[in-house]
Design a protein around this nucleic acid. Structure first.
Lengths: 211, 211
DNA sequence: GAAGGTTTCGACACTGTGTGACGAATTTCG
DNA sequence: CGAAATTCGTCACACAGTGTCGAAACCTTC
């Protein structure tokens, strides 16, 4: 059951699978056997299609893990486009990032699996660089516009990279501990950035409580 | 200058090449033809050895670019071990990073080539994650020790990642513009981090001057 | 209900990375 | 000279990723 709904007036052979189905299967196999130990053949044959077909849906074996992340980049971009110019730059960025990271409770387990893979499997570095880069550029473009500098000059570039770095630290801690809400970790990390990591702010870590 | 050029009491067949020779050849071919367009066979045959032998010196095609970077990680680790506990944490980190990035003028052209490849070739993402991780952990370990928290808790992790992110932004701008000293860019980026990217500090980019 | 257009799929072949196994080559030591 | 040590080359293999081409399955139209 994928999305056989609007087969109205749709010519040609119907798809034997869907990007979403491949994603779910791949995620399951990766967590069961490991990323490296799972071949593209395994994923494809489990879905009942050929290896070649997998690569028609995703450019690489790793790409199957980045759908949600790419969607988040788009969300952040839109939120920043509507952000108030009255806010300090970094505050606007923080609000957008936090707003883009509210997930429905039912989506959390899958999100956690994905993030755990992303932060532990070293072979994913190749693809992560590409997707992280898009995330960073969404921030850099906004910062560059706000302060009237090219997006690829030093400060916009640094802000984009630094904010992502802080968020990745928060993602990683959250996926490892699973005790508090993701946004609590994100907020703490971004607040530390805004404070310039002053020693006085380096004391409290989010406590095991809350949802 | 790798190691035993003096073949004193060294049994067995002498090496037909060296890690350093392969590095120089690879760097030249990468910049001439591009990373993707250069095969391991090209590098090996230019050095006069077999493809298999290349993989005895380096674990992967990309690894050939990370020698210097790994050495820098060790330098930073040692500098931090000797850092004064009277300095604020972030200031100690900044001093160590800046000190580890003073290069002899004769080494700069090669350094620039390497950094340009590292910041432009997307296929290097796989290996970069591994080596960047070691860099980050050198910082996180120090920060964790200083503030009395595990190195993998949120703030040490965040500081490590954020400082690397800022340095990478500086590296990238420097390798793209080549106008000022590398440490000028690094200092500017790290100062912005320490200031929490306050709007007032986001105005000036290092100017085309200096060495 | 046959013909033609459309879309997805499978089979095949190919390049390149990375790895394991094993024997050959080359040097020093006894 | 023979033995031990060390590096190298050849062969074989698994897997990712890509291009090509024809077949399969669906729709529309006559």
């Amino acid at each position: 059951m994928t999305e056989r709904s609007s087969s109205a007036g749709r010519r040609g052979r119907p798809p034997g699978t869907s990007a979403r189905e491949l994603e779910v299967i791949a995620l399951r196999l990766f967590t069961e056997r490991g990323f490296h130990e799972t071949t593209v053949d395994d994923i494809a044959s489990t879905a009942g299609v050929s290896r070649r077909t997998f690569f028609r849906y995703y450019e690489s074996k790793a790409d199957v893990l980045w759908n949600e992340f790419d969607a988040e980049v788009e969300t952040i971009r839109k939120l920043l486009a509507d952000a108030s110019a009255a806010l300090p730059v970094l505050a606007a960025v923080r609000e957008a990032v936090l707003a883009a990271n509210h997930y429905r409770a039912e989506d959390v387990p899958e999100l956690r699996m994905r993030m755990h893979l992303l932060s532990t499997v070293t072979e994913l570095g190749a693809s992560s660089a590409v997707h992280y880069d898009a995330w960073e550029r969404a921030i850099s473009a906004y910062v560059g516009e706000r302060i009237g500098q090219p997006a690829d000059s030093l400060y916009p570039l640094a802000v984009g990279r630094v904010v992502l770095a802080a968020c990745r630290a928060a993602y990683e801690r959250w996926s490892a501990r699973a005790d508090a809400d993701l946004t609590v970790y994100l907020d703490a990390a971004l607040q530390a950035v805004a404070d310039g990591f002053a020693d006085s702010s380096l004391t409290t870590e989010p406590e095991p409580s809350g949802t």
